[in-house]
Design a protein around this nucleic acid. Structure first.
Length: 1035
RNA sequence: GGGCGAUUAGCUCAGUCGGUUAGAGCGCUUCUCUGAUAAGGAAGAGGUCCCAGGUUCGAGUCCUGGAUCGCCCA
């Protein structure tokens, strides 16, 4: 071992910088790949982030989990490529550029020029690339950033086109007219998974409007009023009809303050009209009776004829409920999915008086040009003025907003391109069955549920910066989907250098069917289709590297935050199922959210964002990583706390480092004294614990459970530090080779176990211990040494430690400090327990500072037994008879039973006239201490202390006080631990007498080569109120 | 309104197949140990296991309903 001095107060952030430097010098990441070349692959897919924002704490979380399993699998012998990736397209990028340019509409973008705009998008995508790269390296995420795939590259886009062509060839790409969530600010429709990203709680108006009936008919008379509820007053201007449930019971009723009879669902009368409104029900009838009733619309801007025959009439529908509202539902064909379907059924015309920018068009008179959501208040006032309003309230509900710009979405009937994923629902579900989700409940819960309710993928976006939709169309309406750049060149004679808009827009060709010129449709595609195509697009498959793609599909492992259920997890699965009919990943780890210390969501506006660099600079990347890995199961989310990170450093990393420092402190002596000493029980014990730990960590990591794997390492390090080293110190002072070898082996193995978790400190320790490879990350994962495992020994040690714990507790109760030796400890234990304690008697004696252990089998002299039933064994046997059994056991004589069990006999009890035999496992014997003894018990096992202190013991106790005082003096004098001294003592006569009587002990403990008693005055310590003068001089 | 998850000590979290006295760490108080450690050990204080029913000889654990929080959907 090289005698590298280990700084016990090492700064971890500084250490990590040194390790990073060494990794660079030795090219460790690449070397770790080279060494596994040709081995079986274990495939990781990087879900591409967008580098146009700074990385935050949640990115660190994702990145360290993306790192740990690839590192582990590499050590297990797999070849684990880690190709980086960047998501480059989409609205977020466009919005950032719009902000730079100070513009905010599509018209302004087009005025600015699509070419120039897209050029700026291209530049903006990688604004924070350096930040991302720096952070990625600094937190030890090994990722190939030099060969990262980028969704804006022509090769990538060509693969995406290929995928769309495949989907089109299967007849699954279509243009449809549907009501879609639409962002009027961004001017584009959103897919359902984008929709999922933007729900917010908002307060909207909730109004009850009166629609006067215009003709007598059925149960109603002209002048009766239909009561209609809506939370979107802005859609009332294009009210087309009113929907009712044909089965539901409605009433025509008169309520106190209202002049006219009103119509609404019977179940909602009191809720709508008020409980004390003096209601008189004039008539009851099913909703079907209202079919065809004509009414006067709330606003007259659009005539009934605009909608066709059934305009402004009551229609029968299947989506009306009596849960809220009035049971009569306002229907505006263009602004709701249910409305749209109903309109189709009754052949109503789609009338949409709202422009694409979300303002009313000229048909809506005074409101023309106003943003619809802003008109709510005035429309309500207008209704009120005209006596059409029954009541206006506010209503809090969650409503979808644009996930990037925050504008409330409008539901809008629009033409859009779709992929018919819903026809593949069974295949999606089947693919999902093959995936191991972590946590497991995602599979049939959140994600499975989502697949079950799958709707067609709204693919097109009426935007600029994205993969162009490769669909060309002629005037006859024929369409052609282009699947490669070669094909486009063949058709058009144009070879595109950059396939983005606007260049691609200029390319046309004759229609293969009718020879008319085909032009590309204007849309680009959903960015989620880009990232979901990465399994093949990152390789430019199938145009190139097809065999590489096939060898790397599907992925063994992906990891992203939970919100990707509707994002990347879905788009990957959907595209893979569409193209290859199989899942693109085998194991998924879903990460939860990071909240701040108060449980609040982190947001820029609250100013509670955690800046990763602050944590790294203060505690280090390993500390950050360790926190994420071990604080809790990652999918449960985190309440981020700097204190918790600090605690991890103090209690784990520092403890580990200190153990390593301890080894280095004495290793120089070890070389000199090599060969001395055979392995002890303690050596065998810690090696057994090590083997158990290796097995457990391996098992947990195989199960993608980093949390319990890490905690198992921590438990081992605690045993190593607080029991093995603590109990073995004297052997290290003596330079016993077996002790050094054991500790070194343990730390070396720990460094390997920790390599995936805390790659920096693991490598520093490995290097410091003289590990054979240039880095721990080039090592093989340790094998659990089955021959080292000795479970009996581990159990025995646990009993011995328990005995120590009880003895110390008895000490604490008796107020006799441990420094004062006592004559004996009486240990009550029999059988296995007794043998275990006897085997480790020296340890127990030493820890308790007693001269001897005396064993007694029976506790009669120390206390009486208490006998209890063991429900765990007896419960299943006796079931409902348990109360009687427990009573019968309570009636037994405990001393008798104790004696019988000691002799291995069974005990008989009679329950309900039947005799039963009870064995030792069925009964628990506990000791009940008698007065006057200091006794601690645990089950049948107890420790009592003989508290008598005679002259000799008293002298030894004082000698030990003297030693402690001298040690303090040594430290104060700045001596090194191995320095020999000349010791001079003076002061209180009794202290000096005690020291003299135990001089060999005092000298040995303090490394004094000579002891003099001539009253030196160098330092003075106080022991039990007496002065001790101490002089230490290096000998 | 529906789905999924969570709720255990002041804080952060364990708690296996249902077993009768629910644990750990941190923090606090007192004591103690110390040739590595900002460490270790002992004691004390600190609990309505979210609530209410139910199943069972027995429920933190299983079932039903509800509350609160988070996420997702409508």
């Amino acid at each position: 071992m090289p005698p590298t001095p280990v700084d016990p107060a090492q700064s971890f952030p500084e250490l990590e910088e040194q390790v990073l430097e060494r990794w660079r010098e030795r090219d460790v990441f690449q070397e770790s790949l080279r060494r596994r070349a040709g081995r079986p692959q274990w495939v990781f897919y990087e879900g591409p982030p967008t580098a146009n924002g700074r990385p935050g704490a949640h990115h660190v979380l994702a990145r360290v989990f993306k790192d740990i399993y690839p590192r582990y699998k590499t050590m297990r012998g797999y070849y684990v490529e880690r190709k980086g990736g960047w998501d480059c397209h989409g609205l977020p990028v466009e919005i950032a550029v719009e902000q730079q340019l100070g513009i905010s509409s599509k018209a302004e973008i087009e005025a600015y020029g699509i070419e120039a705009f897209n050029q700026r998008c291209r530049e903006s995508v990688f604004t924070f690339l350096e930040d991302w790269n720096r952070l990625t390296e600094r937190i030890g995420f090994w990722l190939d950033l030099d060969h990262a795939y980028r969704t804006l590259d022509p090769d990538y886009i060509e693969s995406v086109w290929w995928a769309l062509r495949q989907i089109s060839d299967k007849g699954l790409l279509y243009e449809g007219h549907k009501v879609v969530p639409y962002c009027p600010r961004c001017g584009t429709a959103l897919s359902s998974h984008e929709l999922a990203l933007g729900y917010r709680d908002v307060v909207d108006p909730s109004i009850y409007v009166r629609f006067p009936v215009t003709q007598d008919g059925g149960p109603l008379q002209a002048g009766d009023e239909l009561l209609v509820w809506t939370t979107t007053p802005w859609t009332l201007v294009s009210n087309a009809a009113v929907a009712v449930d044909p089965e539901l019971t409605y009433v025509r009723a008169k309520a106190g303050p209202l002049e006219r009879p009103v119509v609404l669902a019977e179940a909602l009368v009191e809720r709508v009209l008020g409980e004390d409104a003096d209601i008189v029900v004039l008539d009851r009838f099913p909703g079907a009776a209202l079919d065809g009733v004509r009414y006067e619309p709330p606003f007259g801007y659009l005539p009934a004829s605009a909608y066709g025959e059934r305009g402004h009439t009551v229609l029968l529908a299947d989506f009306v409920t009596a849960e809220d509202g009035t049971g009569l539902v306002h229907t505006a064909i263009a602004f709701g999915e249910d409305d749209f379907r109903l309109g189709q059924r009754y052949h109503l015309e789609v009338v949409n008086p709202v422009r694409l920018d979300g303002t009313y068009d000229e048909r809506i008179g005074p409101y023309a040009g106003r943003f619809v959501k802003d008109a709510d208040r005035d429309l309500i006032a207008d209704l009120e003025r005209r006596g059409r309003l029954l009541r206006a309230e506010e209503y809090e509900h969650s409503y979808p907003h644009c996930w990037r710009c925050g504008t409330p979405l409008l539901y809008y009937a629009k033409p859009s391109w779709y992929i018919a994923t819903s026809t593949l629902r069974d295949r999606l579900l089947a693919a999902n069955e093959t995936v191991a989700w972590h946590p497991e409940h995602i599979k049939h819960g959140r994600f499975g549920d989502w697949l079950l309710n799958n709707v067609d993928w709204a693919l097109s976006r009426e935007r600029y910066w994205g993969t162009p939709l490769p669909v060309w169309r002629c005037e006859e309406g024929h369409t052609h989907v282009v699947g490669s750049f070669d094909e486009l060149e063949e058709l058009s004679g144009v070879r595109l250098e950059d396939p983005h808009r606007p260049y691609v827009d200029a390319v046309g060709f004759p229609c293969p069917q009718c020879n008319l010129r085909m032009e590309r449709v204007p849309e680009v595609i959903d960015v989620w289709f880009d990232s979901g195509s990465m399994p093949f697009a990152q390789e430019h498959a199938p145009f190139e590297h097809e065999e590489r793609f096939e060898a790397r599909f599907p992925a063994d492992y992906i990891c992203e935050a939970l919100d990707q259920t509707r994002g990347w997890f879905y788009s990957l699965l959907a595209i893979s199922t569409l193209l290859f009919d199989q899942a693109p990943y085998r194991n998924v780890v879903c990460l939860g959210l990071i909240l701040d210390g108060e449980g609040q969501k982190m947001s820029k506006s609250k100013g509670n964002i955690v800046v990763p660099w602050d944590v790294i600079d203060r505690y280090g990347a390993d500390a950050f990583r360790w926190y994420f890995f071990t604080a809790k199961q990652p999918w449960d989310g985190y309440r981020f706390s700097e204190e918790a990170i600090g605690e991890g450093v103090r209690l784990f990393l520092r403890q580990l480092w200190s153990t390593y420092h301890f080894l280095s402190l004495y290793s120089a002596d070890a070389d000199a004294a090599a060969g001395a000493g055979a392995p002890t029980e303690l050596d065998r014990w810690i090696r057994s614990r090590l083997a158990a730990t290796v097995a457990e960590v391996t098992e947990r990591l195989d199960a993608y459970d980093a949390t319990f794997a890490g905690r198992a390492v921590a438990a081992f390090v605690d045993d190593l530090s607080n029991w093995y080293v603590r109990r073995s110190r004297a052997r290290f002072w003596a330079g016993e080779a077996a002790a050094f070898a054991t500790l070194r082996d343990c730390l070396l193995t720990v460094s390997k176990l920790l390599a995936p978790f805390t790659p920096f400190v693991a490598d520093a320790i490995y290097e410091g211990l003289g590990g054979p490879e240039p880095s721990v990350h080039l090592e093989d994962w340790p094998e659990a040494d089955a021959t080292a495992r000795d479970e009996a020994l581990e159990a025995d040690m646990a009993v011995a430690r328990e005995t120590v714990r009880m003895g110390l507790s008895a000490r604490g109760q008796s107020k006799v400090k441990v420094r004062q030796p006592l004559r004996e400890a009486v240990v009550v234990a029999a059988g296995r327990e007794r043998r275990a304690i006897e085997a480790h008697a020296d340890v127990v004696r030493d820890e308790l500072n007693v001269k001897a252990l005396r064993f007694v089998d029976r506790a009669d002299e120390l206390g009486s037994y208490e006998l209890k039933a063991n429900y765990r064994t007896l419960g299943p046997r006796f079931g409902p008879q348990m109360p009687q059994v427990a009573a019968a056991i309570a009636a037994l004589d405990p001393a008798h039973v104790a004696a019988a069990l000691r002799e291995g006999r069974h005990v008989g009890v009679n329950v309900d006239g039947h005799d039963h035999e009870l064995g030792p496992d069925d009964l628990t014997l506990a000791l009940q201490p008698l007065d006057g003894y200091q006794l601690e018990r645990e089950g049948s096992h107890a420790v009592a202390l003989d508290l008598a202190v005679d002259e000799e013991l008293r002298g030894e106790g004082l000698a030990r006080e003297v030693v402690r005082a001298v040690q303090n003096a040594r430290k104060a004098a700045g001596l090194a631990v191995e320095d020999r001294i000349a010791l001079t003592l003076g002061g209180d006569a009794e202290l000096l007498a005690a020291a003299r009587a135990n001089e060999a002990y005092v000298a040995g403990e303090t490394l004094a080569v000579a002891v003099a008693y001539d009253g030196a005055q160098a330092q003075t310590a106080s022991i039990e109120g007496r002065d001790l003068h101490i002089g230490v001089a290096r000998a």
